[in-house]
Design a binder for these strands. Structure first.
Length: 275
DNA sequence: CATTCCGCCTGTAAGC
DNA sequence: TGCTTACAGGCGGAAT
């Protein structure tokens, strides 16, 4: 479900309300992708300093007498977070509750590809392992034509799959990869190494704009994405190509096409996008 | 090293 | 109606 915009929209919807509060309990449901990695009791009393995002991960920074460190959260394909005074009893798909003095942060994740992992810091333990392979942030100054061009150079993989990989730039999932390539007028199957610095520049800008527009739209709610207030997004109604196969291109009216790349659906305009 | 494929889970929709 | 199949927004790790 969640790509960078959905994760960022979620973060903004609860970060300020949970910050400064203390952990008073933890509720665990079924196992997620990885075990929590610490004793639940050791988290009690820790205070929540801040919630920051790195790629599609959220880091809940904790500090306390017993334990420093934090929780690294990932929403996987179907995860969502809620933050409320009283979320009620946990349902069959509620797998993690962080009870704080300011409210309960609850992870709901039917497919359980998500994760909640404790680490002593972002630079150590499991968090370091997971975060160390990530590419640059798309809203940072490091996301430039030169950086992308370098990341694609000499590679035969399709440019769409290189974007999805997350090692060059983070946060671009399946929806926004198709969208950004459309806006950059690049065919998704183009070999990465054939993208010159000029087209790399267009793609850098397109990724930034598409993600920013999606954040402004409150994310995409293809099925059931909600932020921590239960608010849904509407970017899915604004896509240029994603989910629009057979419908006319918004630029040239040519029917949008769909194909599979690495078992993932890609949407593109055969007229506007060139190899 | 680069790339492709598998598997983790469940829900939903389409096809028969 | 009921059963089977395909597909879904991610990602680490094994296989090639």
């Amino acid at each position: 479900m969640p790509e960078l915009p959905e994760v960022e929209v979620t973060r903004r919807s609860f970060a300020d309300r949970i910050a400064g509060h203390r952990v008073r309990g933890v509720g665990l449901g079924k196992p997620l992708r990885w075990p929590l990695g610490c004793e639940v009791a050791s988290l009690i009393g820790a205070s929540v300093h801040e919630v920051v995002r790195r790629g599609k991960y959220l880091w809940v920074d904790l500090g306390g007498p017993q334990k420093q460190g934090g929780l690294l959260l990932h929403l996987g394909m179907s995860g969502s977070l809620s933050f409320s005074a009283d979320p009620g009893p946990a349902g069959p798909h509620d797998h993690f509750d962080l009870l704080t003095t300011g409210g309960v942060l609850r992870l709901h994740d039917p497919r359980r590809f998500g994760a909640v992992v404790w680490s002593p810091s972002r630079e150590r333990g499991m968090a370091a392992r997971l975060l160390s392979t990530l590419g640059v942030e798309p809203f940072s100054e490091a996301w430039t034509a030169a950086h992308l061009h370098q990341g694609l150079a000499g590679r035969s993989i399709a440019v769409k799959q290189a974007l999805l990989g997350g090692h060059i730039v983070v946060g671009v999932g399946n929806i926004y990869a198709s969208e950004a390539l459309f806006h950059a007028r690049i065919h998704p199957a183009t070999a990465a190494g054939r993208i010159g610095v000029v087209r790399a520049g267009r793609l850098v800008q397109a990724v930034r704009e598409v993600l920013a527009q999606a954040v402004d739209a409150g994310g995409s709610s293809l099925k059931d994405f909600r932020d921590a207030h239960g608010q849904s997004g509407h970017f899915q109604n604004e896509t240029a190509v994603y989910g629009r196969q057979g419908q006319p291109c918004r630029i040239c009216q040519t029917p949008i096409r769909r194909m599979l790349q690495g078992q993932r659906a890609t949407y593109w305009c055969p007229q506007c996008q060139r190899r």
